[in-house]
Design a protein around this nucleic acid. Structure first.
Lengths: 162, 162
DNA sequence: TATTGTTATACTCTATAACTATA
DNA sequence: TATAGTTATAGAGTATAACAATA
């Protein structure tokens, strides 16, 4: 690698002004490429179960919490907008994968939880997800993988406070 | 961090079977969160210039190559599907940001290039992109940032050959 | 017969605003 | 008056198939 990023002009650059890191090497693209590589293996598995990537995010997020959570909380965790999520929850409820109930105490809030059927679906898909994970773990090694997580966490933290 | 990922059951896990890494900690989500953090700062800049994230990817990819490239090549580099790209190119051409011409030699191929207007737009936006980049660079430090790139590259390589 | 790119079609998600009902 | 969630609406991207032109 060893790309010059110290503010000086880059070696192969025809421009005198400071360049963007080349497209292929830009951080957003590097992140997207890594994610694509992971998801490319995983999307067919989801498709078999007629789940979109976003619906899977919702199920996984709900599978993680033991209790039910509000729509707002769920939107934050899944990076989905309220309106998108709202309609997705209708679909997932119709499929019996999630259940909703009004919050006792604050009737504006609607609490969502995953159903046993939903948990079974997650449990069915989970092992296939592990295979992809293991490939990456084997490739990078445990130490480097943890380091990747750490670097990603620190990157995400940079712009957490807008 | 130090999550147990060696195949043994996890400490806080109620399940006897092998768990998924928790949703928040899953690799795709970690990658998405990092990317979101970067793009959250950048999207408003693109919106000012009425560009979507995908249109920006196309312009950046074309700005990178000195020559014109085929639609297929462009699709690969930008992670866009042919039909999506095809329609986007019409829009970008109408805006005078790109130009297309039939390939001499193989009339099936259509070669695309960025126009001077397109390059000016990229040059206008680029410095704002650098600010975001510098924040991350400052936070992680040069060494760790390069390491992040290296780890992302190795992650992407894992599933390159399906 | 295979390849390159475009069109057609249906669906999903994004994004913003407006609305309902609570608080 | 502010908040939580839904509905409305417009637009963009995804995905697959079908198609035209060319190799």
């Amino acid at each position: 690698m060893s790309t010059t990023r110290d503010g000086s002009s880059r070696t192969a650059s025809p421009s005198t002004t400071r360049d963007l890191r080349s497209f292929d090497e830009s951080l957003p693209m590097a992140l997207m490429r890594a994610r694509e590589a992971v998801m490319r293996r995983f999307r067919p598995i989801l498709a078999e179960h007629e789940l979109t990537e976003q619906q899977w995010r919702v199920l996984r997020a709900l599978d993680d919490v033991d209790d039910s959570i509000t729509v707002g909380e769920l939107a934050e965790r899944t990076f989905l907008l309220g309106p998108s999520l709202s309609r997705m929850l209708v679909t997932l409820e119709e499929r019996g994968l999630i259940a909703r109930a009004a919050d006792r105490g604050d009737a504006r809030r609607s609490k969502t939880e995953i159903t046993p059927t939903g948990r079974r679906l997650v449990a069915t898909i989970a092992p296939r997800s592990e295979i992809v994970y293991d490939e990456i773990s084997a490739q990078l090694g445990h130490h480097d993988l943890e380091q990747l997580y750490d670097l990603l966490r620190r990157t995400a933290a940079v712009t957490d406070q807008p």
